[in-house]
């Protein structure tokens, strides 16, 4: 439990991508094993200082992944899941694909951070397909990460370009996994999804940025509780 879970905050401006990445990084417990999804979630790595001891996993078969490699540091046998050259940190290890996904599916990763098209109030995640008929489907490791990590953090904008909310009563896009999301980090605020013993989910606004709780209630089609202090 971090302090921010119980004491909500509110700021006047919405969070930029970098601020959001910093916020997520600060919420990851020291010593965690973490997988950062392709795209925006990789920004979180920039804010994980070495003294935190967070170990990054890349699903193509490595723990202890370092920063992106440049120039002479590029090794053609060392890439991340996004196929970008990376570096290895002291203490790194390599393993084959089945072991890598067993690590994930077996619940050994503490946190994964994924992008999303939509998250439902029940914690269903949609991030792999828009369901467009002409699109060629591709899933990669998204479903494995959603099903496997102990905590699934979603990093996304709260509203789509057309203004429609991405936190929804039920996903309209094809789902990646059911009831898997534990937190949603957005430019306008952070939502916690607490699963009750009966399987239902309590959705709590932990902090809001650049938007009032009243406007959030009006624009989101889902009911939510508000943490004290927000």
């Amino acid at each position: 439990m971090t302090a921010q879970q119980t004491t909500g905050t509110q700021s006047s401006a919405r969070l930029g991508r970098d601020d959001l990445a910093r916020l997520i990084a600060s919420d990851i417990a020291p010593g965690s094993y973490v997988n950062l999804g392709i795209g925006q979630p990789t920004l979180v790595a920039d804010h994980l200082t070495p003294e935190r001891g967070v170990v990054l996993h890349t699903e193509n078969g490595m723990l202890g992944m370092g920063a992106q490699a440049h120039g002479e540091d590029v090794d053609h046998d060392l890439i991340n899941a996004g196929k970008i050259p990376v570096t290895e940190l002291p203490g790194a290890s390599y393993f084959h694909h089945a072991d890598s996904f067993a690590m994930m599916r077996g619940g050994h990763l503490d946190v994964c951070v994924l992008g999303a098209f939509q998250v439902s109030a029940a914690g269903d995640l949609a991030n792999w397909s828009t369901g467009a008929p002409e699109a060629i489907p591709a899933v990669g490791g998204a479903m494995d990460l959603a099903a496997g990590a102990k905590q699934v953090f979603v990093m996304m904008t709260l509203f789509a370009k057309d203004g429609s909310p991405k936190l929804v009563p039920e996903c309209t896009y094809p789902v990646t996994g059911l009831g898997c999301v534990t937190r949603v980090y957005t430019d306008h605020g952070v939502f916690l999804l607490d699963r009750r013993a009966d399987g239902s989910v309590r959705l709590v606004l932990r902090e809001a940025h650049g938007i009032t709780v009243e406007e959030l209630r009006r624009r989101l089609g889902v009911p939510f509780e508000v943490a004290s202090g927000v």
Partner: peptide
């Protein structure tokens, strides 16, 4: 694929690895 000249079986990456294993 768009010409309908190849069949695709899409498998989540970890399921692909585990099916091989």
């Amino acid at each position: 694929y768009r010409a309908g000249e190849i069949e695709l079986e899409l498998v989540p990456q970890g399921n692909l690895a585990e099916r091989l294993r």
